[in-house]
């Protein structure tokens, strides 16, 4: 249950992500875990687009780490893809619970240097968050079960 602790307070991640987006003047920010699940985001119009970028970002990170291993290296500090219209920065970092990955897209208002500087601050802030081992709030199990049935029926049609 390595992620068990994380779930309760991922709302707290929003602050550092917003600060990063503002200070580094980036267009899009996405904070995901190694499985490509989204913990925080800023700048995306559609929740479902976020997931596409997250899935690909996690894939890029995972495959580049595989490349590093093939080359006998421990891994990359971060990845950067340059481009005329926009640039992409992918930075993984450890938390007390698990590895998280920051994906960000920026244009000429920012630069790789700026992104790196404020990425380092974001990492510090996230690692310092107090919620890494707090207890989880609960919800009514019976109610959840009832709603689950109804929700599935609604999506797939009653069978």
């Amino acid at each position: 249950m390595r992620r068990g602790d994380l779930e309760e307070f991922i709302g707290d991640l929003k602050g550092p992500v917003d600060t990063f987006a503002r200070e580094a003047a980036v267009r899009l920010v996405l904070l995901i875990n190694g499985s490509g699940q989204v913990l925080a985001q800023r700048g995306f119009a559609r929740a479902l687009d976020v997931m596409g970028v997250a899935a690909l970002g996690a894939g890029i990170h995972a495959s580049s780490r595989a490349v590093a291993q093939l080359l006998g290296m421990p891994g990359f500090k971060h990845l950067h893809q340059g481009g005329a219209a926009g640039q992409v920065f992918i930075g993984p970092f450890q938390t007390p619970s698990e590895e998280l990955i920051l994906i960000t897209v920026f244009g000429e208002d920012s630069s790789l240097g700026l992104v790196q500087v404020f990425y380092a601050r974001l990492v510090e802030e996230v690692q310092k968050l107090p919620g890494w081992s707090q207890a989880r709030p609960t919800t009514d199990a019976a109610q959840f079960e009832r709603d689950l049935e109804a929700g599935l029926d609604h999506f797939f049609g009653a069978t």
Binding site: A47, L48, M51, A55, Q143, G151, F155
Partner: peptide, 18 residues
């Protein structure tokens, strides 16, 4: 590499379920 498709199931017990 992979195919990927996100789906939105709507709200279950007040939780947006994807």
């Amino acid at each position: 590499f992979f195919d990927f498709l996100p789906l939105d199931l709507g709200s279950i017990s007040g939780f947006q379920t994807r």
